[in-house]
């Protein structure tokens, strides 16, 4: 996280492509993350239906509940768009509200996940139970860790906004967080589709 201060020379930096360094960095980072989640999802798919003992996805996944948490996360992406839009128009107060909403919705999603994990553990599915448990908890756990990092990032931006560092010119800092947040959101849509919807159907 290279944070550019409003007074730094970043504003005048000239780049070959015209894009800022940090923007390129985050895109490259997200490409890398695709491989990370891709490998985790591939592991889960390879082991689909290979568990020697239960419970499996059919027995334990609760699609209605997770649909709600998925909706919460999707909604947070909308809030993120509003936050970015506010900062680029220089409306710092509106930005604070929207970014806080985003963070709260993210945290709500994490709450759902904590509830889900606990519930599964009580039902007898832990990472040690079977292959489904190992792959499910690892994949969704790492996604949850990404959401957690995102929430901390969003809260940090919220905090910065009180120091006067965040202005219309530094919308880039928000843009980067937004890109990350949307990416994490999209990954969840893939996970929800593959692990939950397809996992239960197949």
């Amino acid at each position: 996280m290279e944070h550019a201060p409003a007074t730094g020379h970043v504003a005048i930096e000239e780049t070959t492509t015209g894009l800022s360094h940090r923007k390129l960095l985050i895109w490259a980072f997200l490409a890398s993350e695709c491989m990370f989640f891709g490998s985790l999802i591939a592991t889960l798919l390879v082991y689909h239906g290979k568990s020697l003992s239960g419970p499996g996805p059919k027995e334990i996944l609760d699609i209605p509940v997770t649909s709600v948490s998925t909706f919460v996360l999707l909604l947070s992406s909308l809030m993120m768009v509003m936050a970015y839009s506010a900062i680029t128009r220089g409306r710092v107060k509106a930005f604070r509200i929207w970014i806080m909403c985003t963070a709260i919705l993210g945290a709500t999603f994490l709450g759902f996940q904590a509830f889900e994990f606990r519930h599964f553990a009580l039902e007898g599915l832990t990472p040690r139970t079977n292959l489904f448990g190992s792959t499910f908890f690892t994949l969704t756990g790492f996604h949850g860790a990404h959401v957690t990092v995102g929430v901390i990032w969003l809260l940090s931006l919220f905090g910065y906004s009180f120091r006067g560092d965040l202005t219309r010119e530094s919308g880039l800092s928000v843009d980067l967080a937004a890109l990350y947040w949307h990416f994490v959101d999209i990954v969840w849509i893939v996970i929800f589709t593959v692990v939950y919807l397809i996992g239960v159907a197949l």
Partner: peptide, 10 residues
């Protein structure tokens, strides 16, 4: 966990 554990089907 059981990723590479043959006893659990890994």
């Amino acid at each position: 966990t059981n990723f590479f554990n043959p006893a659990a089907g890994g």
